[in-house]
């Protein structure tokens, strides 16, 4: 599984979260880890104002070659859902490519997307176990990057390096632990 990047030269990822949940940071961390692995990557938010709690998206494009395009991602190879309740309001699987992978933060299996694989990890449980809570919200973004990197074939060490570079002190260590747990605990629950 380690050479995944879902079998291609370039992989495009869309993150779904709520404003304040760290979807943009998750995309940035994923790219930082990919660059540490020797790949090229770009990460960008949905280009607009963010409001805490509102559904938001962030994007990452990772490739073994330099990336020149600045276009939006409309047909992702992978989608990551930080809060499954968002799926009641937005179609998180919209445009997901055939053979792609969806990774959802969920305590239980969910309905897989059509012609793509579904993975779940209980990132909320991991955050609560570790005491990773800020302003009442469990911090799940870094854990979800850990889970996704397993599926994309980005080694855990690169994720941990990226986490320790972006954060510091106790928060860095707790997030590193969350990424590691999610990396190990993410499971495939089926394919549509």
């Amino acid at each position: 599984m380690m050479s995944s990047l879902l079998g291609g030269e370039t992989v495009e990822v869309r993150f779904h979260g709520r404003g304040g949940q760290g979807a943009v940071t998750a995309a940035n961390l994923l790219v930082d880890a990919a660059v540490r692995k020797g790949l090229w990557g770009v990460a960008f938010p949905f280009f607009g104002a963010e409001r805490r709690g509102a559904p938001v998206t962030a994007y990452a494009r990772i490739s073994s070659k330099r990336i020149y395009t600045r276009s939006m991602i409309r047909r992702p190879d992978s989608v990551v859902v930080l809060d499954p309740a968002i799926m009641n309001y937005v179609n998180a699987f919209a445009g997901l490519k055939e053979g792609g992978a969806a990774v959802i933060n969920s305590p239980k299996p969910q309905q897989p997307p059509a012609k793509a694989r579904l993975y779940v990890v209980n990132a909320t449980r991991i955050a609560l176990d570790l005491g990773l809570v800020l302003a009442g919200w469990p911090l799940v973004n870094v854990a979800m990057v850990g889970a996704l990197s397993r599926i994309l074939g980005i080694e855990l060490d690169y994720i941990l390096e990226a986490v320790r570079s972006a954060l510091s002190g106790r928060i860095a260590e707790l997030n590193a632990k969350a990424a590691e747990r999610a990396y190990n605990e993410v499971v495939e629950v089926g394919a549509g």
Partner: peptide, 12 residues
């Protein structure tokens, strides 16, 4: 530098 597609985009 272009709004968002450079200003807010992370790359190496």
């Amino acid at each position: 530098l272009d709004a968002f597609i450079l200003s807010h985009t992370v790359e190496p």
